[in-house]
Design a protein around this nucleic acid. Structure first.
Lengths: 359, 359
DNA sequence: GTGAAAGCGCTAACAA
DNA sequence: TTGTTAGCGCTTTCAC
C-alpha cells in the first residue's frame, strides 16, 4: 500500500508519458527538447504536459547531465556598490549566454568563502567566479580546479593560481592617485584600507594577503618615496573593515597632532565614513584636508565639494570575467588569460594644496 | 569496456564504502550524518572519506530528500541599496538557521520575475521570498504555493495572496512625509516614482499595480487634498525606472513654469538623480526647492544640506520575512502573518518654506 | 548495528 | 522515429 507522500507529489515525465500514451523516453525527449520526435507525438505530449501542469525537475536534470546551467559567484560584500555593479555585469553576461547565477557572500572572511565554495561545488554549479579574500590559503580554490570546474578570478589576482583573471592595474592606479596628492604639495598622506591585521599596524607588504590591497600600497609607497617623503608607511591605516571600525580609525587619524593633510581611501564605503568624520570635526575639504577615493560611487559626485575618484570599469570587470568563464564552459580550450582593464581618475573638487601652504 | 568519463569522476559514497570495507548504506549513514553506526565503523568510514577527499553531491542528496536547504530570493534590483540591505537581513537570518540563499534579480520586470521563480522552483529551493513587481499577474506566485513550497512577501503586500508578508505602512509614512512638506507651506508638491505606465501620466490609483507605490500615492494625495491643494495628482510623475529616465523626468519637471516647490522621491536612487539635476540647474535646497526621499541611503547624510528621509527598517524587514519563512520551513503551521514594521522620518536640512513665501 | 535493494526524476545508450 | 533499459549519487525501507 502506498503511503501518502510527505512532500507534495510533483508531476514527472512518467505522468506525462502515461497521459500522452507514449513511452517515458519519448515524453522526456519532447519535454527536454532533445532527440527527435514526430510532430503529432510532440503535440500530444505538450498537450498532456500542459494539462498536468508539468514542471521539469532541474535537480534530476542536472544530476544526469552533469550540467546545471549555473555560475556560482562568491564576492566579498554584496552591499559594497563596487560588487553589486560587478555582479550586474556578471549577470548580464550570464543571461545573454543562457546561464543563471547563484550569489554567495563571503563578508571577506576566508572561512565563509571556503563554505560558499563548498556549497556551490556541492550544488554542482558549472563554473565559479570568486573575489578571493586572501592569497594565503587558497586550497579551496585549487579544489575547484581539481573538481574539473572552471574558475575565474575577479578584481584580485592570485599569482600562484593559473586561472582566467580580470583585474585593474592597482599598483599603477594607486601611483597615479598618490601622485595627484604629491603634486598638490602633500607630504603627509594617509592610505586607509580594509585589511584586517593584528593591531592594524602596517609593517611590510608581506603582511598583506589581498593582492589588490598589496599592489595599491606598493604603488602608494613608491610614489611617496620617490617624492622624498620620509617613512610614508607610518601613514598606512589598516583595519577599516566596517563602518564602525572605519569611523574609529578616522577619528584617531584626524585628531592627532601629526594629522595627515591628505587621505587616499581604498573604497567608497571607507571614504564615506572618513568624509563624515571630517565634516563632524569641522575639517573643510580641500582647504583643510584633501581626499581621493577608489570607486566612483554615486555619492562622490553630490557632496560639496565633489570627490576626486579612481574610476574603475566595474561593470566591465564583471562582464569580462563572466565572458571568459562562459567561453571555457562552452569548451573553449586556450591558455589562461589575465585581463587588466584600464582605469581613469576623475578629478573633482576634493584635492587642494596642504593647509600649511596657505598659512 | 569502460569508456573514459567525459566529466571529472567524483568520489561517491560507494567509493568510500569500498575503501572502508562496509556497505554503501553504512557509509552513507556516517557520511550523511543520519541513522546509527558503531564508533569503530564510523571512524573507518571517516578515514576513508578523508583519504579519498570525498565531497557529498548536494544535488543527489536534495533529490532523494526533497529538501535543498536553500531559500530562493527574488528582488527587484540588487543594486538598489534598499534591496541589498534587505538581502543581508535575509542572509543573516538564513545562515543562523542553517539555510543558504540563492539570489535572483527581476529588474522589476514581471517576465524576469516569472523566469526567476520558475528557475528557483526547478532547483527545488525549500521556500521563496519575493518582492512582487506587480499585483496584476501573480499566477507564478500562486504556482509556488501550489507546488507546496512556502512563499513570503517582502516590502510589497498582495491582498489576494494569503501568505506571510512583511511590509511597512507605506500609506501612513507617505502621509507623514507629505505633511512635513505641507506644514512647511508647500502646495505644489511633486511625487516621483518608478512605476512604468503609458505616457507616464498618472490617471488614477487603479493604474498602479505595485502595492507599496499605490499606498504611498494614496497617502500623498490624501494629505494634499486635506490641505486644500487643488488637483495634487497633476504633480505625480511616473516612469523613473532608471537613472537616465529619472534625469529626463526631473529635467522636465524642474524646467516648466509650473515647477513644484517641493519633491517627494520614492527611493534613494531616484532622489539622487533629482538632486543632481537640481544642482545642475542651480536650484538651492531648501531655499529654492525642498526634497524628501524614501530610504535613508548613505549619501543622504553627506550632501549639503543633508536630505530629510523616510527611514524604513530595511534590515529588519529582510530579517523578519526570512524568520517567518524559516518557521514555516521547520513545519510550524499557523495562520498567515502580515507584519507591518514601524517607520520613522529623519528630519535633516532639505525642507524649507516654498520660495514664493520668502519673496 | 549493518546490509541489500528500491527508487527519487531525469537523460542516454542501444535496440527495434 | 520510438521504446527499453541502465544508470546519476544519494537516502530509505526492510530484513538480518
Amino acid at each position: 500500500m502506498k503511503r501518502t507522500a510527505p512532500k507534495t507529489q510533483s508531476i514527472t515525465v512518467s505522468d506525462v508519458a502515461r497521459v500522452a500514451n507514449v513511452s517515458k523516453a519519448t515524453a522526456a525527449r519532447v519535454l527536454g527538447g532533445y532527440g527527435v520526435v514526430s510532430d503529432t507525438i510532440r503535440a500530444n505530449v505538450m498537450a498532456a504536459a500542459k494539462a498536468l501542469d508539468y514542471r521539469p525537475n532541474e535537480l534530476a536534470r542536472s544530476m544526469t547531465t552533469g550540467r546545471s546551467g549555473i555560475i556560482g559567484v562568491v564576492v566579498g560584500d554584496i552591499e559594497n556598490p563596487f560588487f553589486s555593479l560587478a555582479v550586474r555585469g556578471i549577470s548580464d553576461a550570464a543571461r545573454a549566454a543562457g546561464f543563471n547565477v547563484i550569489l554567495a557572500n563571503s563578508g571577506e572572511r576566508i572561512e565563509a568563502e571556503r563554505a560558499a565554495v563548498r556549497l556551490l561545488i556541492g550544488k554542482r554549479v558549472d563554473g565559479l567566479i570568486v573575489t578571493p579574500s586572501e592569497s594565503r590559503d587558497i586550497s579551496h580554490l585549487r579544489d575547484i580546479h581539481r573538481s574539473g570546474r572552471p574558475l575565474a578570478l575577479l578584481d584580485r589576482a592570485l599569482p600562484d593560481l593559473d586561472v582566467d583573471t580580470v583585474t585593474v592595474d592597482d599598483r599603477d592606479i594607486a601611483m597615479r592617485a598618490t601622485r595627484i596628492l604629491v603634486d598638490a604639495g602633500h607630504s603627509k598622506i594617509a592610505y586607509v584600507t580594509a585589511v584586517d591585521a593584528e593591531g592594524n599596524e602596517y609593517r611590510d607588504l608581506g603582511q598583506i594577503y589581498t593582492s589588490s590591497v598589496r599592489e595599491r600600497i606598493d604603488g602608494f609607497l613608491k610614489v611617496c618615496r620617490d617624492a622624498g617623503i620620509d617613512r610614508p608607511e607610518r601613514h598606512i591605516c589598516l583595519g577599516a573593515t566596517s563602518p564602525d571600525e572605519t569611523r574609529k580609525l578616522a577619528d584617531k587619524l584626524l585628531s592627532g597632532p601629526d594629522r595627515p593633510t591628505a587621505i587616499l581611501a581604498s573604497d567608497s564605503l571607507i571614504a564615506l565614513e572618513i568624509f563624515k568624520v571630517m565634516r563632524q570635526r569641522g575639517l573643510r575639504i580641500p582647504q583643510d584636508i584633501s581626499l581621493i577615493t577608489f570607486h566612483d560611487a554615486d555619492w562622490t559626485s553630490v557632496t560639496t565639494p565633489p570627490i576626486t575618484v579612481v574610476d574603475q570599469p566595474v561593470y566591465a570587470l564583471g562582464k569580462s570575467v563572466a565572458e571568459l568563464l562562459i567561453r571555457r564552459l562552452k569548451g573553449e580550450a586556450r591558455p589562461t588569460e589575465r585581463l587588466i582593464l584600464p582605469t581613469t581618475i576623475i578629478e573633482r573638487g576634493s584635492v587642494g594644496p596642504p593647509a600649511a601652504y596657505k598659512l
